[in-house]
Amino acid sequence: MRKNLQEPFWQALIVLAISYVLLKWGIPYIPPLIGVSSAPVPQSVLVQFMLTVAVGVLVWVSDNEERWRRFKQPIREALVLPERKRVRVALLVLLPLLVGFVTYDTVRPRVDAPAGIRAVHPAPPTQIDFRGEPVRIEGAENPLREEGRIEEARERGFDIYYQSCMPCHGDYLDGQGHFAHGYSPAPLTLRGGSTIAQLTESYVFWRIAKGGPGLPREGNPWNSAMPAWEDFLTEEDIWAVTLFLYEQAGISPRTWEEH
C-alpha cells in the first residue's frame, strides 16, 4: 500500500478522487461553515471542472520521462502479465459496462426539463416604446438623479417597492420574498456585485418596464414571471424605484466612461 502511494498511477487516481470530493461536496458544504452561502455545483460545471483537472493530471504524469514510464507501468502490467489475468478480465468487462451505463444515463428519457442557458445580460435596445412614448435607453441617465431629487425619489421608490416588488424580491432585496419559492427561475437578488451593480440605471429601467415578456430573443429560453411594469407604473415611478434599489442595496450603478 505504502509503495503504491509512491506510484504516479495511484497518485493520479487519488488526486482525481480528492478533486471530485472537493468539487462535489466541498463547494456546497464548506463555505457555509464560515458563513458564506453556497449551493451544489450544477452537473455541467462539475464535468467541466473535472475535465480540466484530468487534463492537468495527464500533463503532470507525462511531463517527465521517468514519471511517464512509471505511470504507464501498472497499466501495461494489468494488460500483459499472466498473473494479472483476473484484473485484466475484470477491467475488460467493467470498463465497457461503465461506458454503456454512462451512455444509457445520458440518453434515457427523463421527466425533468433539459438544462437551459440564457444570456445573463441581453443587449438592451437603443430605445423602447413606453406606452406609445419613445424612451431612449442607450446612454440615458436617471432623470431624477440628474435633477437632484434623490431624497424624494428614494421615498417614492420605497413605497412602490413595498407595494409591487417586495413579494418576490424580498424585504432585504435578496430575492427571498414570500412568493419567491414558487418561481423558476427564482427572483433575482439585487444585492451583491453580480446583478444590478453590473448594470446602468437605464438598463434596469428597461428590465422593469418590459419585464419577462419584453426580453429579447437572445434572453430565451426564459420563463420569467416578472410583469411588464409599464402597464402599472408611470415612467417617473420606474425611475424612482430604480434609484431606490441602488440606494437601498448600497451600490452605485454602472457608469460609462466619458468620451
Binding site: 452561502s37 450544477p42 455541467s44 460545471v45 442557458i117 423558476s184
Partner: peptide, 25 residues
C-alpha cells in the same frame, strides 16, 4: 472558464436560486 450564469437543470436552478451560483458566481 467558470461561466457567470450556469447551465443547469430545474432542480439545480432551484437549489442555486437562479442561474448565478451563490459561491462560484
Amino acid at each position: 472558464a467558470t461561466p457567470h450564469s450556469m447551465i443547469a437543470t430545474r432542480d439545480e436552478l432551484a437549489a442555486m436560486g437562479g442561474t448565478h451560483h451563490p459561491f462560484l458566481g
